[in-house]
Write a protein that binds this DNA or RNA. Structure first.
Lengths: 209, 209
DNA sequence: ATAACATTGTTAATATTTTAACAGAAAAAC
DNA sequence: GTTTTTCTGTTAAAATATTAACAATGTTAT
């Protein structure tokens, strides 16, 4: 199932998480408007996304939650799962690890890297921390395909180079510094300050009309 | 300057940050293709955004960095700045605070909230931490308009209620749980797992062709 | 002086994403 | 058993966002 719109992919991930919660409440079916309500989007959009992935609900009952979860998994997960590394064990890096703990997903954080000798060779939230000099070696031996970068901005470029050299396939850059990667590496940058400034802009025009 | 496209707003924030770095390197002018290169976008898009905000560069020299920074500020900042609170001082909350330290922006984190008595009444990265019961009171007395939610998902709904009751204008929800707010409150949700699953999807189709 | 070049500003074209409209069909109501 | 209701699935329309195309014009080279 290729060629799905990027936005649809994002929503599929969100649908799945919402559905898992619903399922754990012993619900078996869900309507498009319920799912939409959970995610603050329109029911049409939900139906359209679900149409795109080729699933059909039943009239008057909506979608079978379990089936839908499985289908979404088939689309966005890799068959064999993917391994993830966190590079930089500051507050943000540790937050990422605890964020993942207990989340049922095919992605597993299997290694963390840091330069601080006090952190190296310890285990954080079940994840072993290696010295950053070991990055290339561990990524290859563990077959890690995705890296989350949570180092200081000043280190971003250098770490990115190492990651690319180690053959990483995807990088999620939480550093405030944009980096460059070759075309075959998938890069996504996220900047918290941009998010906040955007909110600031939109709340600014939200006062007395 | 209203009615700018949402994406343009996001990029303006990113332009400014890139420009500040450039400025600190004693550069005075920048070309659209340079700025584009820093952000992995096309020069056309840069020019178009800059056109939309009504700025003009000079031919053959590009844009005057200082002027452009100032203009972007006029558009996305509030005249008097805005105050921000971090709710939840776990790893992620602390990461937010240190992320902001030293960033020159009109947004200031002036308060943090937590429920843990060991954290309450201490200062983290220059930001005082109050007990979460004080949330409404402090938000009003300090005139805080934006909140960053970094509490556990299980607390998200309750905290959101308090924030709304306190009259907050914008919420940035980093919790894995979507929340509901009235229409006049601006809400942005960001889920780290969704970002990662998206990368996983796109790297999945990036192997041997 | 003239030609070649490099760069902006802007309109038009294209692509992507969301929203609307509505037919179809099972279930419920009567 | 007929009508009404309530949902889905899908096509069409609208809105939003990006990219292309190119005129305009100052700068450099010759």
């Amino acid at each position: 199932m290729k060629n799905l719109p990027e936005r649809t992919i994002e929503r599929l991930s969100q649908y799945r998480r919402a559905l898992l919660i619903y399922l754990s409440k012993n619900k078996h079916h869900i309507f498009s408007h319920e799912l939409a309500g959970l995610l603050h989007i329109t029911p049409v959009q939900v139906r359209r996304d679900i149409m795109l992935i080729g699933y059909s609900g039943t009239l008057r009952q909506g979608y079978e939650i379990k089936e839908l979860i499985e289908l979404i998994g088939k689309i966005i997960d890799s068959d064999d799962g993917q391994k993830v590394a966190v590079v930089g064990l500051g507050n943000l890096g540790r937050a990422m690890i605890s964020y993942f703990n207990g989340k049922r997903t095919k992605l597993t954080i299997v290694a963390a890297f840091d330069i601080n000798p006090e952190k190296v060779n310890r285990v954080y939230g079940g994840v072993p921390c290696y010295h950053i000099d070991m990055l290339g070696k561990i990524i290859k031996s563990e077959n890690i395909s995705i890296a989350i970068m949570t180092v200081p901005g000043s280190e971003a470029a250098r770490v990115t180079e190492s990651l690319v050299a180690a053959g990483i396939k995807g990088i999620l850059n939480y550093t405030p510094t944009p980096v460059n990667v070759p075309a075959q590496t998938f890069l996504q940058e996220y900047d918290m300050i941009t998010s906040l400034e955007k909110i600031a802009y939109f709340t600014k025009y939200n006062g007395p009309e």
